[in-house]
Every structure is written in structure tokens, then in C-alpha cells.
């Protein structure tokens, strides 16, 4: 009877009626939700019963020693690696384990890899233009014209990443840090809801790090993007983090504010201690 009633209900929206591209549902808070995720490679448990929740608009730093499973976790979220068990949800509507890489990317999860790859022969502006969300089939690309709206979006992102003056220079002349910002800008062009950023400040100068910290903290916010940063540099993490998650051997060792985490004896033992000794 209840089934019949639900069929008769005009307001009822069946799952198959919801388009796959429907916006992310974050009414219940988290934008990304990993529960009890495990994956092993040849018997080695890279991720072991990992639970992680990222709230909408949050800026989260993830730290951990080498082999803690940070990159594997990113691979699972972006669909590159399939976990053996567990569930991964984007908002409360999209089960990421049922989607492939391009589908996840078009839902609004952007990933920045460690090594910046920009198109060096093209200008900064053109790099952003190519990254813009658009019809990317061959003939529409041939006849495509940059709309005023698209131009505004590019200018907006140029301002965000601080490359306004260099917009017509080839991307090949940018410094390492500027290339990283351009790469983040290319992600922003696709209007992502969640940005995954892998070691953004590796190889950067002190000043570039400061700029990057400003950029990333400016990006995160309610109604804007949520940002997940994986980083080794403790000074940098301290400068941007509101919440820090420490990974160790594939699961969460500690989570909380930087002060709390860095005073946690377990964390000091596996990670921070080693760092301080080295320093």
C-alpha cells in the first residue's frame, strides 16, 4: 500500500529521475564522506578502515609520514583506485564508487597533482581558457568563441591567482610557484566544489609559500570550494590549517586543531617527533 501511495505522490522524485549531473547535496553538512574504506596492494594495506569527513567550505590539511596512504586516499576519491571495501560519498547524493574518473571530475572534484603541468607554449590566459568548462567535442571547439561571460570568469581567476599582469605571457616563462598557481587556476576554471591539492608548496620560496597560503585560505569557504591539502611542510600547514588530520598506516591517527594534534603523544611519536629531531 505504501508503495502505491508513494507512486501516486506528485512530489515524489525517483532516483532514476535525478540526472547524474545534479548538484551536490550538502544540506546535511559534509561534502565528502569516507567510511570504513580499505584497500590493499599485494597484501599491503595502503588504506585501513579509514573514516574521513570534510564539511562544505572547509579547508582541511592532511599530513602523515611517507606511506601513510595520503596519495592513495586522493586516488580513491578521484576514482583512479577502487577500494576493496567501504563507501565514499560526495554530498549525500553521489556515491563516488559508482562513477569513473571523468564523471567524478565533472561533478566538481578537481585535483592538483604534485608536479605542475601547464601548457608552456600557450599564454596564461589560453591555459585558463582551455580549462574552462565548455563543450569539449571537436567541432564545437573549432567554432568556439570566447563569450563575455567566459572572459570575465578568466579575469576573475587571473585576479585570484595573482597572474593578471602575466596573462599574455607564455606559461613557459612562469616560475615554479607561479606555475602551481596557474594550475590551481585551471582547476578553478572548472568551478569545482572540492579541490584536492597535493603538496602545493614543494620547492617554493618563502614568499611564494605565503602567497599560496593566502590563495588557499581565500578559496575555502561556505558556498565556495572546500579544499583538502596534503602537505609535508609543517610550517605551511601551521599557517593555513584550521583542522588537521594525521594519517598513519592507512588510518586516521589524530584529528583536530594544529595545536591539539601537535601535542598528541601518538602523533609526536610517529611523525612530528621525527620531524623535530631532523630539524
Amino acid at each position: 500500500m505504501s508503495i502505491l501511495r508513494s507512486l501516486a505522490d506528485r512530489e515524489r522524485v525517483f532516483d532514476f529521475l535525478v540526472p547524474a549531473q545534479s548538484p551536490v547535496d550538502v544540506r546535511h553538512g559534509p561534502i565528502l564522506y569516507l567510511e570504513d574504506v580499505s584497500v590493499s596492494f599485494d597484501g599491503f594495506k595502503a588504506i585501513d578502515a579509514l573514516d574521513l569527513t570534510i564539511d562544505d567550505g572547509e579547508l582541511r590539511c592532511i599530513i602523515g609520514p611517507n606511506g601513510a596512504g595520503k596519495t592513495t586516499m586522493m586516488d580513491i576519491i578521484t576514482g583512479k583506485t577502487r577500494p576493496d571495501s567501504g563507501s565514499v560519498w560526495f554530498g549525500s547524493r553521489h556515491d563516488l564508487l559508482t562513477l569513473n574518473e571523468p564523471e567524478i571530475a565533472s561533478l566538481g572534484i578537481g585535483r592538483k597533482f604534485q608536479k605542475p603541468t601547464v601548457f608552456e607554449a600557450l599564454t596564461v590566459f589560453e591555459n585558463l581558457e582551455l580549462a574552462m568548462a565548455a563543450d569539449k567535442r571537436v567541432l564545437p571547439t573549432l567554432t568556439a568563441r570566447l563569450t563575455g561571460e567566459g572572459r570575465d570568469r578568466i579575469e576573475e581567476v587571473l585576479a585570484t591567482i595573482g597572474l593578471v599582469e602575466l596573462r599574455h605571457g607564455p606559461a613557459g616563462i612562469l616560475s615554479h610557484g607561479q606555475k602551481q598557481w596557474l594550475e590551481i587556476g585551471m582547476l578553478l576554471m572548472q568551478r569545482p566544489r572540492l579541490l584536492l591539492v597535493d603538496e602545493p608548496v614543494a620547492g617554493m620560496t618563502e614568499q611564494e609559500m605565503e602567497r599560496t597560503a593566502e590563495l588557499l585560505t581565500g578559496l575555502a569557504g561556505k558556498g565556495k570550494q572546500s579544499v583538502v591539502v596534503v602537505e609535508h611542510d609543517m610550517g605551511f600547514v601551521r599557517s593555513i590549517a584550521r583542522t588537521v588530520t594525521v594519517l598513519h598506516q592507512g588510518s586516521v591517527l589524530a584529528e583536530g586543531s594544529m595545536d591539539r594534534v601537535s601535542n598528541d603523544p601518538k602523533v609526536i611519536e610517529v611523525y612530528l617527533g621525527a620531524e623535530e629531531e631532523a630539524a
Binding site: 571523468p102 571530475a105 565533472s106 603541468t117 601547464v118 601548457f119 608552456e120 607554449a121 600557450l122 589560453e126 581558457e129 582551455l130 580549462a131 569539449k136 567535442r137 571537436v138 571547439t141 573549432l142 567554432t143 568556439a144 570566447l146 585551471m186
Partner: peptide, 28 residues
């Protein structure tokens, strides 16, 4: 001079990256 030309140059210099942006490189 079209956007397709810029995508071509992108394929030339960083094919994997172009694919990652959502362009079907082999069709271009």
C-alpha cells in the same frame, strides 16, 4: 587560430594533461 588549434598545441606539449581537462585527444 581557433580554440581547436590551442587544444592541438596542448595535445602536442602535454597529451595526458589535455585528456585530464576533458578533451578527447584522439578525436582532435
Amino acid at each position: 587560430a581557433s580554440k581547436l588549434g590551442r587544444v592541438s598545441v596542448a595535445c602536442r606539449d602535454a597529451e595526458a594533461r589535455t585528456r585530464f581537462l576533458g578533451y578527447r585527444v584522439e578525436r582532435f
